[in-house]
């Protein structure tokens, strides 16, 4: 299953946040989603989830609009803001409510909590969690219904070095299993180690959609290549 964008456009008043994006995010590889702040990455991801309505164009998951699925969590798992959990609810109860909304068996909750290493703290109210724990809980939610597509917005945010390494391995494993993995990040060095393919946008427009090796070209680091692409180099 792929994520496909067709002339996807979002306008906020006079501002074009996303400007006619055409894109196919393919399975079996980690696709990094790069762009400066305000480039339209989060807006694009919200439109893929059906949270924001496109001004024009379409965003499809497996050829259909995400919000047209009866059990959408089984098609695509997403991590948007890490703190999207009620602070008064425990992490485990959050995942239980999530599982039940898509008729996923309750036992999956304990399975994904073990995968992300939160078994011990999941019965504490999530307001007491650190940012890193919040990220892990969000990733647990994305994995909950074992979906073929994963879309993660800044999953590395707030993770300690162990966590960063863990998520790198997790994303690579998920892609190796044949899943579609679409990840945004600001950490270029991290992306250089994780992604097989890169999508770069600036001012809502597609700047590049190519394999990592091609984007790197003759550059020593992804950072150099990125600044050349986005034109915001010092």
């Amino acid at each position: 299953m792929s994520i496909t964008l067709e002339k996807l456009t979002k306008r906020y008043g006079p501002t074009l946040a996303v400007d006619g994006l055409d894109l196919a995010v393919r399975p079996g590889r980690v696709t990094g989603f790069l762009g400066p702040n305000g480039a339209g990455k989060s807006t694009t991801m919200r439109m893929v989830l059906g949270l924001d309505r496109p001004t024009s164009g379409r965003a499809l998951v497996g050829g259909r609009a995400y919000d047209s699925y009866k059990w959408p969590l089984r098609e695509m798992g997403a991590l948007l803001e890490a703190k999207a959990v009620h602070p008064g609810r425990t992490g485990r109860n959050h995942l239980l409510a999530m599982a039940r909304s898509n008729a996923v068996p309750d036992r999956r909750v304990d399975e994904v909590l073990a995968v992300v290493g939160l078994t011990d703290v999941a019965r504490r109210r999530s307001g007491t969690h650190s940012l890193g724990m919040g990220q892990r809980l969000g990733i647990a939610g994305a994995l909950l219904a074992d979906p073929p597509v994963l879309m993660l917005d800044e999953p590395v945010n707030g993770l300690d070095p162990d966590g960063v390494r863990w998520i790198r391995g997790l994303l690579r494993d998920l892609a190796a299993e044949g899943r579609t993995v679409f990840v945004s990040s600001h950490l270029l060095s991290e992306m250089q180690m994780t992604a097989d393919h890169l999508v770069v946008i600036g001012h809502g427009k597609l700047l590049a959609d190519a394999p990592m090796t091609e984007i790197m070209g003759g550059h020593a680091t992804l950072e150099d290549a990125y600044y050349e692409l986005t034109g915001s180099a010092a």
């Binding site: 989830l49 949270l51 959408p72 997403a78 948007l80 999530m98 939610g141």
Partner: peptide, 11 residues
């Protein structure tokens, strides 16, 4: 701030 999560479960 949970509305987006909720709507991604039940669109």
């Amino acid at each position: 701030g949970t509305i987006r999560a909720t709507l991604s479960w039940i669109p």
